[in-house]
Design a protein around this nucleic acid. Sequence first.
DNA 1: ACTTTCCAATTA
DNA 2: AATTGGAAAGTG
Length: 803
Amino acid sequence: MKIARVIVDVPTSQTNRLFDYRIPEHLESVVGRGMRVVIPFGPRKIMGFVIEVTGETKLDKLKDIVDVMDFTPVLTNELIDLGKWISETTLCLYITAFQAMLPQVLKAKYKKELWLLAEEEELNDDLAKLFAGRAVISYEDLQDSTVSYRQVQKGIQDGLLEVQYKVKGRETKKTETFIAPAVDVMKLEEAYEDLSKGAKKQRLILSYFLENPEEVHRRKLLEVLSTTTASLKPLIEKGLLEEVHKEVYRDPYQDREYERTTPFDLTEEQAGAIEPILQSIEHKEHHTFLLHGVTGSGKTEVYLQSIQKVIDQGKEAIVLVPEIALTPQMVERFKGRFGSKVAVLHSALSYGEKYDEWRKIQRKEVQVVVGARSAIFAPFENVGIIIIDEEHESSYKQEDYPRYHARDVAIKRGEHHHCPVVLGSATPTLESFARAKKDVYKLLSLKKRMNEQAMPEVEKVDMREELRAGNRSMFSHVLHEKILDRIQKGEQVVLFLNRRGYSTFVMCRDCGHVMECPHCDIALTYHRRSERLKCHYCSYEEAMPTICPSCESDSIRYFGTGTQKVEESLGQLIPEARIIRMDVDTTRRKGAHERLLTQFANQEADILLGTQMIAKGLDFANVTLVGVLAADALLHLPDFRSSEKTFQLLTQVSGRAGRHKLPGEVIVQSYTPEHYSIELASQYDYDAFFLKEMQMRKMFQYPPYYFLVLLTVSHPNQMYTMDITKQMGQFLRNHLSDNSIILGPTPSPLTRIKDRYRYQCMIKYRDEPSLLKIMNRLFQIHEDAIQNNDLQITIDFQPYQLM
DNA sequence: ACTTTCCAATTA
DNA sequence: AATTGGAAAGTG
């Protein structure tokens, strides 16, 4: 007897273990490790992942597997082990880890149905009305009806009704219609002769097939012969042609032509950097490389040529890029070099499109995947290299369960496949650079730009002085003039607004009342388009008030510097400027992002104004001026990484100017231009910044000198939350070593979200071998309250977001 | 005596 | 997470 050990699709700690099921004979040759199966669980039927197939069990009675959902495993052996590792190191449930590795559509969908077993006459009036002649009704119909649960229960007891559970995948396959001859050429010819002379279009279609007897895409056929289905239909009805429905991939890039590029000759510096990577591929040895290259130094070419080597060896490559940088320009470079060997995975794809790209990987129809964070789980089995571009990006850390960092997963996979992991950045995280200095990672440096051009000159503008000089606008005098100058010359400008910390809130000018969310401790954000106030943390929204709810004055206004507002005042300042604004609002619609960028590239606008999303990966030849409107917006947030983030952002934004023949220039506006992160970013001095920031981190006991764990407790009752957090802090102080520092409990920076109070403890440690065990114990102690008292505990190892 | 609501245990 | 069966609370 064969037995499958299964992780069930029930996300709680009590079911977070293997359950044994008998594999019925007719499924014995089908069921395998890594497949999804339908299993009975209590009275229900649910989905589960087969983790192991064995011959023995400790139990004497087992239930049978009901059905298999896959014929090929969706999880490879490596991914199963990886999922286990993730759940153990990030303290999440097994099922959560496995679900995170797969595309959305492979999540099971459950349906509960009520079946009529007897004749309708045997039912009472209420039930008969409910069924109304149908044999099956969905459970939602029952809930919508007035029939009481009691009646249904009785019906079930009397054997008149039955509840059935259905488990379905959500995957859908897209099909398209092809037309093919249904008879041989002889018959076609006969039919052609028989057709009346008047049926010109029909004759045209047949003559097409006489010349090309293969099947052809219907839309294309109709297009080529410039005809319609009206002429095609009679031929199909006569049985001469037939419709063939074929499965096709939803390929978002299919109608695009990519210019093929060939490998460039590497510069001496690039050649030096790529050599150790190629060696690592050659010798099948795992190493983690930190490729530190200034913007424009040609990191991507190093990636591309390393990947070429991997493909030549018959292996596969995984490339991670930050979501925000997954622009058409980036995709183009990979598609241009490797053509149809590339799958692309990012959040702008529909679920169906993601699934199709994923299946190309699963079926090994591609050798390269370029994608955002979750692409690290690409189900390749022969990985030859893993590349993480813009290594410092915070989007590589997932902020909800499983709270994994793609970099850690990459290294784990690199070890398994004995292949190199390359972390690339112009501004590496302090953690990574420190590791490179300690030779844990191998440091590779690219210090020169490929075009031998100097980095654009950065001019800092002290906005305090502007204010003193009577300029109250958000554009300094210099910036205003330079913009005018560029427009006159027909060159382009990129304006960058750091939105974080500058959201548009609504305040009463008379009494100072600020509109806040009734469920969270945060000011509401004003949305101009809908004229409504929205909360960024819960889904709460309300209409913009006309009078202040506190003092009933009518001088209630919105404040803050959103991109909309900048666009407005820019329009007043320079009415002739053509502006493209890029932010969440203008890029919400599918393809909008790309359309706006194309417009700008075609020089249909003079100024590109945007947030974070224009800081990365963009490359426009005609841009000669970059303006940063508020460089210190990030700097004053309660986050120990704020200096690092500011430095990274400024460096990145500066890199947008003067990438080609025309020299570039950068204006950085700030209220604290003397801050070392602004000062050193404007000098492009990463090494000096690293040293200075390391001093700060050492002094304040932050990473990379210490590891962090953030423990957040939340509950609707504030006192209770504080109490539990205090207990936990005490527990940690009792169990962790004396060298570790435990801070808190303190209220979270956002103390209340969705009517739940949040308190936190921070652990700083250098060496805690049994940390995982202790944290697990912490969960166990409060398991009951989590289960029955609406208590929530989140544990985040190496957190990025301290809110 | 009977119905409704709540809670904890169980899921192979 | 969903279900269920039994205890506790409510109802006339």
